[in-house]
Design a protein around this nucleic acid. Structure first.
Lengths: 89, 89
DNA sequence: AGGTTACGTAAGCGGTGACTTACGCAGATC
DNA sequence: GATCTGCGTAAGTCACCGCTTACGTAACCT
């Protein structure tokens, strides 16, 4: 779903076509993506175009960066402490 | 769970203590983390120490980097195409 | 106005995943 | 050898998630 939207704005029907799920299922997915600020929607006639939303994307990116920083930092200190413990044996 | 392991090697009981799930539940989680190469385990007497595995961590990191590259690239070209379409109006 | 298209939403259902309890087993301690 | 500790695993239960079907609605068309 998200990979399809990366290529540009798409209508619900276009997204659903070619996927092995029904159109309402796609709508429901788009709703949670919208709530997560990962997509935006705008009406165009009877159709409804969805596109990726950079705001939520940036949030995810920042969160992940922080996660990696914390993980690597914690792992580094843990490794150093482990090495120190090894040395005093 | 993973955040606890970041601080260093922990036994199953230590991890389970303070969490709102039972010890067997923690064991099951650790099993899937182990299969995903995200943790390693070594026996120490009757206890079993778990620690983060950098190999699986690197794989995740690489996959995420590729995902972000693809996403941003696709989004960029989509935005440019959108801008061009706007200009010819 | 009537019909068609494209969509969202409610209702209902099945499968799956995460948990708990119960049990078995290896290692330590005496 | 007996017991205790720490753990993994099997079995069973339950809530939740994602899907489909059915229906209602707004915008376009003639």
């Amino acid at each position: 779903m998200f990979k399809r939207l990366r290529a540009g704005a798409r209508s619900v029907g276009e997204i659903a076509k070619g996927m092995d799920v029904s159109r309402p299922a796609v709508s429901q997915h788009l709703r949670v993506l919208k709530e997560a600020r990962l997509v935006t929607d705008r009406a165009e006639g009877t159709r409804r175009l969805y596109a990726v939303d950079t705001t939520g994307l940036d949030e995810v990116r920042k969160w992940l960066d922080g996660f990696w920083d914390e993980t690597l930092a914690a792992f580094k200190t843990a490794a150093e402490r482990e090495a120190a413990r090894e040395r005093t044996r």
